Amino acid sequence: MAPKAVLIGPPGSGKSTVGTALAERLDAVLRDTDADVEAAAGKPISEIFIDDGEEHFRALERDAVAAALAEHDGVLALGGGAILAAETQELLAGHTVVYLQVGLAEAVKRVGLNSARPLLVLNPRSQLRKLLEERLPIYERLAVITVATDQRTPDEVVEEIVKELS
């Protein structure tokens, strides 16, 4: 069993939105590892960061990704930083990893500057730029399919992914 597609990308790339539309298009179920982490912890990710710290969150995230890759055969959306763990990178080998590429300006528009995302709290634009720079080489290396999302509707992005999957 393996997911039909594993969506990766930074905050604001459209993993949840595109994932929902792609799952519907493929007549599959969307599973989001951020939701799995929240269910396991019994609280939102922002509270996990505050109460337990990023290290604890990342451990929960690694477990959630490993379980989802082993159990889920639909569309899987990973949290933006899930790809930082070496274990996760190894587990993604052989899967259909779809990198949803987004530029900084577009990501800022989508995420907003009043974000409740824990890693973007202090200076969202600066933090997002830093995250993009740090993670870009990993996203690109892991991707089997790369789809640009700037100035495109979710349906246009889904259409390209479906073409690439066939």
Rank of each mutant, 00 (worst) to 15 (best):
R117P: 01
L76A: 08
V121K: 10
R125Q: 06
E71Q: 14
N114Y: 03
T146L: 02
V98I: 15
L132C: 01
Y139T: 00
A77P: 15
P44E: 04
T96G: 07
I45H: 05
G42R: 08
L76V: 07
D73T: 13
R135T: 13
E71W: 00
V108F: 14
N114A: 07
T146I: 10
L100C: 09
A85E: 10
N114S: 08
E47P: 03
G53C: 08
A116E: 01
P137R: 02
A116V: 01
A66K: 15
V75L: 12
A148P: 05
F49N: 15
L60H: 14
V157G: 13
E156K: 00
L142H: 05
D150G: 07
A70K: 11
A66P: 02
K109H: 03
P137V: 06
A116P: 00
S115C: 02
E106D: 14
H72E: 10
D155N: 10
R62E: 09
I48M: 10
L91D: 11
K109N: 08
P154R: 05
V158R: 08
A68D: 07
L120E: 00
Y139V: 00
R152N: 05
L119N: 09
K130G: 11
A116G: 03
E140K: 06
R152K: 12
Y99A: 01
V121S: 13
A85V: 09
E87H: 14
I138Y: 14
V75W: 13
E133H: 09
T88E: 11
V75G: 13
A86P: 03
F57I: 14
L142D: 01
Y99M: 10
Y139R: 01
S115M: 05
V121Y: 08
L122V: 03
L119W: 05
E133T: 11
L69T: 02
E90C: 06
L128V: 08
R125M: 04
E156H: 01
G74Y: 07
E90W: 08
E71A: 11
A93K: 14
E87L: 11
G81M: 03
G74S: 04
H72R: 09
H95S: 13
L136N: 04
H72S: 06
P154A: 03
L91G: 11
H56F: 11
V108L: 14
G81V: 11
L76C: 13
T153M: 03
L119K: 01
G42Q: 15
V158W: 06
T146A: 12
A41H: 09
R129L: 04
T149K: 08
I138F: 15
A67S: 09
D150Y: 02
P124Q: 06
E55Q: 06
I45G: 04
E87M: 05
K109C: 00
V111I: 01
I50S: 06
S115G: 04
L142E: 06
I45L: 07
E90Q: 14
P118N: 01
V98G: 06
E54L: 00
